[in-house]
């Protein structure tokens, strides 16, 4: 998948209460959750997002609660990819299960600024900053998680095991 859009940069330790505050957890609907994405960081944050934009996070992105509503809210906002210095454990696993692409790039995250024009090849993990001309290679997806992705995600993986 090729994703081309604007970078929306956020800080370190973005927690899942920032991504989707608890008061919105009374639905499982992707669009409804997406409409309130990052509402715990800044009211009305999501208004800046266009379809296929990219979130750029710092260290430990997605820390805190296990709510799967967090990756769903990001997807529902129209953001298919999150690039970060590092991800919190539960969020990382949830992202994969939900089909949100998560690319870990360590300190290279400093090469992306808010508003940069970004192109991501999710298969190879190559991220191009078209504003600055810099290209970054993300760490590969762990092999076992790649197997789940190849099976079509955890739902499909489990469906095959149950069949």
């Amino acid at each position: 998948m090729n994703v081309h859009g604007t970078a929306h940069k956020v800080g370190d330790h973005i927690d899942t209460d920032a991504i989707i505050p608890a008061r919105f957890l009374v639905t499982t609907d992707t669009r409804e959750l997406g409409a309130n994405c990052m509402e715990g960081l800044e009211a009305g944050w999501v208004k800046r997002v266009k379809e296929n934009d990219v979130m750029v996070g710092g260290e430990n992105f997605g820390c805190g609660s296990s709510r799967e509503h967090a990756p769903i809210a990001i997807l529902g906002a129209g953001i298919p990819v999150v690039i970060a210095k590092s991800f919190a454990r539960i969020f990382y696993r949830n992202g994969f299960n939900m089909g949100l692409v998560l690319l870990e790039i360590g300190d290279d995250v400093s090469k992306f600024s808010d508003g940069d024009d970004i192109e991501v090849d999710t298969a190879s993990g190559v991220i191009r900053n078209l504003t600055t001309g810099v290209t970054v290679q993300a760490a590969p997806v762990p092999p076992f998680m790649q197997e789940i992705l190849n099976a079509g995600g955890l739902v499909e993986y489990a469906r095959k095991k149950l069949a």
């Binding site: 799967e68 539960i90 696993r93 949830n94 299960n97 955890l154 739902v155 993986y157």
Partner: peptide
């Protein structure tokens, strides 16, 4: 495993207990 990040509480009893998302828990 629990779809709640504080599932790790049961470590106090010597259980390997950890939070996961809903889909992992559904599986």
């Amino acid at each position: 495993i629990g779809a709640d990040s504080h599932t790790c509480t049961y470590g106090g009893l010597g259980a390997f207990a950890t939070g996961m998302g809903s889909t992992d828990v559904g599986a």
